[in-house]
Design a protein around this nucleic acid. Sequence first.
DNA 1: ACACAAGCATACCGGTCGGTATGTAATTCG
DNA 2: CGAATTACATACCGACCGGTATGCTTGTGT
Lengths: 203, 203
Amino acid sequence: MVTRQTDLTRDKLLRAAFDEIHLHGFQAASIANILRDTGLTKGALYHHFPTKQTLGLAVIDEVVEAQLDAWIFSPLRESGQPVQTLLKLIDESGRKTELETIVLGCPLNNLMQEMSPLDEEFKTRLNRILSVWQAEVEGALKRDKKAGVVRSDVDCRAAALFIVSAWEGCVGIAKSQQSLKNFGLCMKQLHHYVQSLAVSGEE
Amino acid sequence: MVTRQTDLTRDKLLRAAFDEIHLHGFQAASIANILRDTGLTKGALYHHFPTKQTLGLAVIDEVVEAQLDAWIFSPLRESGQPVQTLLKLIDESGRKTELETIVLGCPLNNLMQEMSPLDEEFKTRLNRILSVWQAEVEGALKRDKKAGVVRSDVDCRAAALFIVSAWEGCVGIAKSQQSLKNFGLCMKQLHHYVQSLAVSGEE
DNA sequence: ACACAAGCATACCGGTCGGTATGTAATTCG
DNA sequence: CGAATTACATACCGACCGGTATGCTTGTGT
């Protein structure tokens, strides 16, 4: 009774939808493909989600955000050495051997680029996630500013905005170039930028 | 005889296709919309372009690249004070009052994000343009390195890669946030990064 | 055990998509 | 001027799209 059958079906749909959307974008994502991949039918899908848009929004809320939270937001939020953690996350991201990230890009960024100008609901939800990201980075910088690790003249909000933007930019360029090597190079530069915010180049 | 009728028709199609693609992306771009906007018919379109893909590739080659060349590549290439010109371009981009750039994003980046994983032809052409961009920035840095304006320990290739990536990242984030103000803030940070490559923070 | 709702399958719909076959008007060239 | 090619218009096609109506099956509460 803990996990009902219906929840499993919903979950299968969400995951398949995420994969399909990640691969083709939302508009080009095919309901038929999702059903083929899950082995389910339209009856199942439209029982759980009234429209394709609703399915997309659910993917954003329950898959995309959860992933980013687990991989980035949460580690940043709970870190005692925020900037160091940020640098670690940037380095890890730059060393990703999982091609998925490089080949298909960041799901959040992909959806933002495609859907934000087209659909208000998408835009709102995606920007909320993005603002959480920025807020976590800004919080990390501010905490280490108070701790004397980050220079006192740094505009933490602007820096956080830039870090997230550049981050997504690096992923995007690496994706289009399909180059793991360039991605590493690029993230290394971002690393340098973050380091330049510290007091004397240390940590 | 200088501009034949047929060239005008082709040009109208190219421009309308560019607008439609810029607005909806390539896959969601509707042939019907392009024809509606131009007042032409399928006969005209498929006379000049055998397939939709061909039309898209022509848009890339003859519109997107030409725009970037006129606005960025060419000024960089012909500048006697490369880094200063680069900073000026970044500032200008950050102060763009034309909402088009912010609302719809960079055509090159939009297409790269959407099409590079899906179509080899698109990927090749788009990456070629991107590599020109990087090469121009790298050249600018190298020339000013030789001139003693840029620090000697700077990895110009990596820095150029990062500058272009961050640039596109800033445009992308600003687009999804639809925020001119944040875009300005973000490009200002990029400005600072470029400045940090100079010898003593000057120029 | 029975009623009733939830979960899911099947068949079908109108609309739009990119693409094509064919016809006609305009242009070029011998 | 006449023939042939170019430049376009019109009508139509099959495929796929998201969405719906309907019915069967399974589970749930009493």
